[in-house]
Amino acid sequence: MGARRTVAEKGILRVNSIESMSTLDGPGVRFVVFLQGCPMRCKFCHNPETWSCDGGQLALVEDVLDKLDWSRRLVPNIGLTVSGGEPLMQPEPCLELLAAAKARGVHTALDTSGCGREDDLVELLRFIDVVLFDVKAVDRRLHIDITGTDNDRILSNMAAVSDRGVEMWVRRVLIPGVNDSADEAERLRALVARHRSISKVDIIPYHRMGVEKWRRLGKVYPYEDVELPGPEALERFSSLLDDSECRTWV
């Protein structure tokens, strides 16, 4: 697994898109910057257009901050979430953006799959209130199958965040028949139990909104036949995670 970087010059981000108001990407209302470039090739990815490291558009960090400042005028307590793609592929401009937001008193979140250099991540943590940590699979072989990469570095990065006591929300896209087994639930439960800074697990139902994008990019969508998880599936998987409360881990 490489620790590639996307660009960039100082002060310039390679941005896929901006969503100025979201309530799904961190606590409260968020201003979300989706960065371009990702080292993983998840078969269920709903944003395959963010993979390439030379797509998207170059944007000055200060222009992104201008947009953030405007958004704060409309929603004063709005937070910043840096997402992707994989933000760890652009650590320097990301750091500038997050540091400037923090300096403004803005709540910050990093939405990452953890697939990047630990040094970079640790550096960013200084300016991050919460990490939204996407865990595609805990089982190593399953992870390779789904994403094309192993999860060794990802799991050690998670430990690095936990060691520094930065709050984490674990996020799991639940794909029926792929990463919803009892075994996978148990592994996830144990992982969550191990890292004390994890405050929440979000189970995100897999959806097929990315299919059309795959087609447009001339790619074959591998999960064409996978069913969508119903409320019961979500409930079942969640309950497997939730019995953690009675145990004590130190």
């Binding site: 969550v192 405050s199 929440k200 697990v201 189970i203 969640s238 409360e245």
Partner: peptide, 8 residues
Amino acid sequence: PHQVPVRR
């Protein structure tokens, strides 16, 4: 998302 709070 379906949220699972972690209680310790």
